[in-house]
Structures are given as structure tokens and as C-alpha cells.
Simulated scan of single mutants.
Amino acid sequence: MRKALLFALILFGVDWIFAVSHSLQYVYSGTSGIRNLPEFMIVGLVDGEPFVYYDSNIRRMTPRQDWMAKSEGPDYWDRNTNKSRIHEQVYKANIETAKRCFNQTGGIHTVQMVLGCEWDDETGATGALEQFGYDGSDFIALDFKTMTYVAPVMQAVPTKQKWDSGNARKDRYKSYFTQQCIESLKKYVSYGKSTLERTVRPEVSLLQKDPSSPVTCHTTGFFPKRIMVTWRKDGVDKHSDVEVGETLPNGDGTFQITSKLTVKTEDWKMNSYSCVVQHKSLQDDIAVLLEEKNIRTNQGGLPWGIIVGCVAAALALVAVVVGVVLWRRNRTGYGKAGTSDTDSENSSQLQPTA
């Protein structure tokens, strides 16, 4: 379960490869060997916000946003429930197939697919992503520029050869990404416009457990998710001795992030250090100067419980995404497509071949 929780945090911390106005993403995950976790899950996200969910325990596609529940009728949920149940059976078989490919028997294993598209409503630019993973590592991904597959492991080569030679599959996917996905993305954005396009200003605090500890710039309560937090020394961006954490959900629809600076007290007292936050909700950057009066410490009744509480709230969302692995190493990213939703109809494509 500990590993599963880590997977959930990884999911929440993943951003799209480049900045866009809107994105639609479906994550399919089949698991084995993880107790108290559904063997199959689908999470749909619009602009990084979960909006639909299915797992092998509830066995029904359900809304995760009020605007989605109000906008779609019974036919939508029945149709996507039926598709999800089919994918559930496929993924259970895929786990066993993948284990044979890698000569594995027991243990914890995961098969994942992330499928999605993005659309810039200002420029009209679009992109798409289809990528598969096994046990948290890349398995195979589609290069949309060449419409061929990239196989980073030898076990995926037979699958690559099969899919590269299948013109019918390529045509179907090209049509999907250039039409259906973008159309569905636009529809969902129109449903949730008041939520997805809102902005909430971040709150920024400097925290330190004790004088010998790193100084943490804690930024919380912001929306949308994309944010830039940097440290500056004498007005110049500082990259060394800086550790930026993942962007995590707070549980109330907003996000938080921390950036730690390791610096000696005498150094920051002799120089000008500041934490600078850039966000869509701000007309001007927030810059908090690193000086004693701006630092909260344990001795001063530092509310570290706030951070712990935020993480706990994030984990409360595990019911939505726990167990989903989004691998971050060697990601192919988005390839520019023409202009496309999945309605959960593509997860059956991961078929590792011995």
C-alpha cells in the first residue's frame, strides 16, 4: 500500500510536457499483488482535474466533478461503464501476458496506459500522447511525427513490429487524436468552464524547523496547478542547493508546492535571498525576502501541521487515483497532431507479445 500511495503522489505531480490552455488525459492502470487496491482503474482528467473514474470494485464509470454529473445523462454513464468493463478484462489478461514477457511470477506488478490530447484555445495548436508502461518504467510509446512506435525495452519489440505494420490501427488512432479527442476536450471544458478557468491566488510562507535546517518556501491554496517557484540571491535565480517538491492537491480543489533552500544563516544574513512565486492569478510576482521576521520556526509555534494536513488531504483523494503510475523517466511527450477524447475506448491496445 505504501508503494501505491507513492504512485498517487507521482500522478498528482505530473504536468504536461509543454504549457497549453487545456488538456484531456485518461490513465488506465491494471495491478496485481497490491492488497486492498482495485485490480483495474481508469482516471479521466481535464486540465489535471479528475472528472471521471472507474475501478474494478465499483464497476461503474462515475463523475468526479459536479459539472460533469450535471452535464451528462444516463446514456453517457451506461455507455462508458460498458466500455470500461471490457477494458477491465483486457487489462487483467495484459498483466499476465506482461509477466510472461519479463519471466515473472508473483510480486507487485502494474500495466499502465496514458492517452490524451491538448489544445491551446488561443493559437489552436494541438498535441497528443499515447504511452504505455510496465512496473513504473516505459514500455512502448507512439511517435506522432512518424506514426511509428518507440520500444525502449527488448520485450516491447514484438509489439512495436506488430503495431507499426498495422495501418488500420494507425488510421484509427490518427482519426481519434485529430477529431474525437479534441472535440471531447472542448465539450468538457465548456461544461466545467467556471471551475477549470478560475484563478486562486497562492499564499506564501517561509518555514524552518530550526536554524540548521533548510528554509522551505511553502506555497499553497493556488489554482490552476501550473506555478513557478524559484529562489533568488541578490536578484539572480539560484539553482544550486535548491530542492523543489511535487505539486500536490490540498483536497479543496487547490494545490500546494514546497521549495527548499539549503543555506547557512550567516550567508543569507549577508546577502539578499528571496523566494519568488509566479502564477496565473498574479499580476505581479510574489517575492518573500529571506529574513528573520518572515521565517516561521518550531520555536515560534510553526504550524507544520498545516503541511501535514495538506498531505493528508491529498491522500484522501487516493480513492480516485491511488495505484496509478505515471512514469517520468524518458517520456516521449506530446507530438503535434492535427487537432481529439477517449470515452475509454483505447485501453485494450496494450498487448505485450512474447
Results as ranks from 00 to 15, higher is better:
V311W: 06
R232A: 12
Q112D: 13
A125C: 00
S184T: 13
V52G: 00
W77A: 05
F51S: 01
Q208L: 05
N271F: 15
S84P: 02
V236S: 10
E72K: 14
F139Y: 15
T258I: 11
G107Q: 09
L315F: 13
S347R: 08
A316M: 07
V325D: 15
D121C: 12
Q283W: 00
K293T: 14
L129R: 15
S212H: 09
G192L: 06
R331N: 09
P38V: 08
S21A: 08
L315C: 09
P214Q: 05
V318A: 12
E243H: 12
R329Y: 10
F7W: 10
I17M: 06
S344Q: 09
R100V: 07
G13D: 14
S281W: 06
G116Q: 04
H87Y: 04
G166W: 11
C181R: 02
S344R: 06
F255L: 03
G124W: 07
S194F: 09
D252C: 07
N57V: 13
K269S: 08
A337T: 15
Y176K: 11
F177Q: 04
Y76N: 03
N346T: 12
Y334N: 01
R59H: 08
F139P: 00
I86M: 11
K92S: 09
D284G: 02
S56F: 08
K99D: 05
G73Y: 04
D241F: 01
S165F: 01
L207M: 11
E292G: 00
I307Q: 13
S23F: 05
L185W: 09
F144Q: 11
M270I: 03
A141T: 04
Q112V: 11
M68V: 14
G301Y: 11
V157T: 13
P63H: 00
V244I: 14
G253I: 05
V263N: 02
R329C: 03
W77L: 06
Q299A: 15
A8N: 12
V277G: 06
A93E: 12
K260H: 10
G124V: 10
T62A: 12
V277M: 11
G323Y: 08
A151N: 05
Q155N: 10
Y149D: 02
K70C: 01
V43E: 13
V263E: 03
G301F: 10
L302P: 00
P352V: 08
K170N: 08
G251H: 08
A98C: 06
V14E: 13
H279V: 03
I108F: 10
T258K: 10
F7E: 09
Q25S: 04
K260R: 14
P214I: 10
N250G: 03
R79N: 14
L115E: 13
P202L: 14
A125I: 01
T159G: 01
Y188H: 11
L315A: 03
F139C: 02
M154V: 11
L261S: 04
K162T: 07
